[in-house]
Every structure is written in structure tokens, then in C-alpha cells.
Amino acid sequence: MENIAFEALLALIDDLTDEQRATFIKVLDENKDFDKVATLLDNRILAKRECLYCKSSNVKKWGRQSGLQRMRCFDCGKSFNALTGTPLAHLRKKEEWIKMAAALKDGLTVKDTAEKCNSSISTAFRWRHRFLKAMKGDVAEHLEGITEADETYFLESHKGSRNIPRKSRKRGGKATKRGLSSEQIPVLIARDRTGGIVDAVLPDQSKKSIKVVLGGKISKENILCIDGGNALWGFACEGNIPCRVIPASKHVHERNPIFHIQNVNGYHSRLKNWMSPFNGVATKYLPNYLGWRRMLEKPKPVLTPVAWLQAAAKPARQ
């Protein structure tokens, strides 16, 4: 803006009403948040300078689009920006993304998130799961040393579905059958002593399903601590993985202070207590919430809204 135009703008400020001044300040603040998000995303792609399609380094700036730096590859001819191929691609209102990241960090409900981000409840819900999509598959590449593994269970939920194959329950409800049944969805969680976590919703309680989740992440170099479940035991035997079966004795950890499953059981407890205020989570979204909780388990210094935004803007891993 030229100096003459800027001075004319300043002269008009004195004539603004209180309501107009508040609107003007709000617009300036939103632009500041937008610039913060755009700079954060642009810096990442400018530092790497690699084509997202053919991995060529022959890329150059190619204007701006939707407030983000656009890049063009002169080998394959395709253009892209920092959000290409990520769950956040094509989402609008980037000025509110830092607030959305802060809402995830604080574990806000959908209603509180909508108020924080100046959006509707449906938009806040959609944003939540777009932000969590990249975190869903962000598990440890491999687990180290002594590793604990155990299943926990969540009541099957069709929350939000139009067609429910049974009578609906209110606010999560209770299972119609006692103990384990087809109404309980198994979730496998494996955790090493360094804090590395691998988790997944299992289609069934079979050795094959566990091998899909833990195969390649646990090896003969590990010592696997389990509670004696047939599927986990069979997985360990098939892979020749050293295994310790921890009996369900009240004071077993006092006799064997190194080999126990208290860490993974503690994680189960924290996960369920944290999910309790959601009054039942739809089974189809359960992997997203596992990724959300996994992110919360990281060291506190890295749990800033910027860190959450950076995690959400990564390509989703299946």
C-alpha cells in the first residue's frame, strides 16, 4: 500500500464506530493468524524443495494460491503446495487452524471447539477428523527392548449413522451381554519402555490380525510381556520372539520387577478415562481417537498448537 493510501486509511479510523473498530481489529487479528499458518506451511516446503510427485529437486516457485506458496516441478510439469496430499488439503479458513490445533491439545468437545474456531458444530467435527487423519497411522516404526502388549475393549458404536442394526443406546449405553462378546471391539496396544506405541483396532482376536499390526515392529531383539492370551502367545511363538507370560497375580510385579505389563495397562486406563467424556465414540472413528491419545502421550514441551498443526499437515499414513 502506498503512503498516501495508508494515510487516508488512518484518517478514516477516527470516524469508525465502536462496533466497526471491533470488526476492524478482528480482521487484523485473523490476518495475523492466517499469515502465521501460511508461513509455517510454506517454510516446510521451501526448505525441502522436492517434487511431491516425482521427487525431483528441479522445482521453482510458481506464484501463490489460496494464500500458500505454489511450486512447480520442471521435470514432471506438476504443481503443488504444502498441503498437497495431506488431510488438510482444500480446507478453508486457515486463520482458524491454530485455534483448532489448540482445541485438540486441550481436548475440547465439539461444541467448545466450534465456539473457539467461530464455526458450526458440523464444521468443527469435520475439521477434528481431518486434523486427526494424519495422526491415525503415525505409530512407532519399531518397538525397542522390553515391550508390553495387551488388548483392551470398547463397546461397538454406530454413533452418527443413519442405519443402525440394533436398538439405539443413549450416550454410549451398556452392552446387552456380560463379558466379551461381538459387541466389544478389541484394540491392541503395544508399548515399550521408551514410550514407543503401536496400536490398532482389530477386526478379530486372531493371531493373523495381531501379526498384521505388530509384524516387523517386534523382533527377536525384543522381550514381549503379555498376559497369556492365545493370539499374542501364538504370534510370539511363530516369530521366535522371546516372551514372558505375566500371570494375573496381585503381587507378581514385586517378584519380577522388570517383566510386567503395568505400563500398557496404565495406558489402557488413561485412554478410557480420557475418552469417557465423549459419551461413546463411533467405532469407525476409533482409530482417529487412538492417534489423538497417542499424540497427547508425547512429552509436554512438544505439545504446542504449532506442533499439532505440523502433525496434521503431514501426508496420512495407512
Rank of each mutant, 00 (worst) to 15 (best):
L40F: 10
A22C: 01
D33Y: 02
G77T: 06
K78Q: 14
L12E: 15
N31C: 11
R64A: 14
A89G: 12
E19K: 11
T84N: 07
F34E: 03
V37T: 04
T23C: 10
A47G: 12
K36D: 13
D35F: 05
K55L: 10
D29H: 02
D14T: 00
E30T: 03
A82E: 03
R21H: 11
K78R: 15
T39P: 11
D42C: 05
G85T: 07
T23V: 13
S66P: 05
V37Y: 07
K32H: 13
G77I: 07
S66E: 13
D29P: 08
A22I: 10
Q20T: 03
I25H: 14
H90L: 12
G63F: 04
L41C: 09
Q20H: 01
V59H: 07
P87M: 03
N81I: 03
L88P: 03
E19Y: 06
L46W: 11
L88G: 05
Q20V: 00
K61C: 11
S79A: 08
I13N: 07
V27E: 14
W62Q: 03
P87R: 02
V59F: 04
A89S: 15
A47C: 13
N81S: 12
N58C: 09
L46M: 10
R44E: 13
G85E: 09
D15Y: 07
L68Q: 00
Q20W: 00
R70I: 05
W62K: 04
A38K: 03
K61Q: 13
K60G: 13
A47F: 10
T84M: 08
G77Q: 09
T23S: 15
L40A: 15
E19A: 13
D75C: 03
I25E: 12
L88K: 09
L83S: 07
D75E: 12
L68K: 00
D15A: 11
R64C: 11
D15S: 12
A47S: 15
S56R: 02
D14Y: 06
Y53E: 05
L83D: 05
T39F: 05
H90K: 15
D29E: 13
L88A: 10
V59C: 07
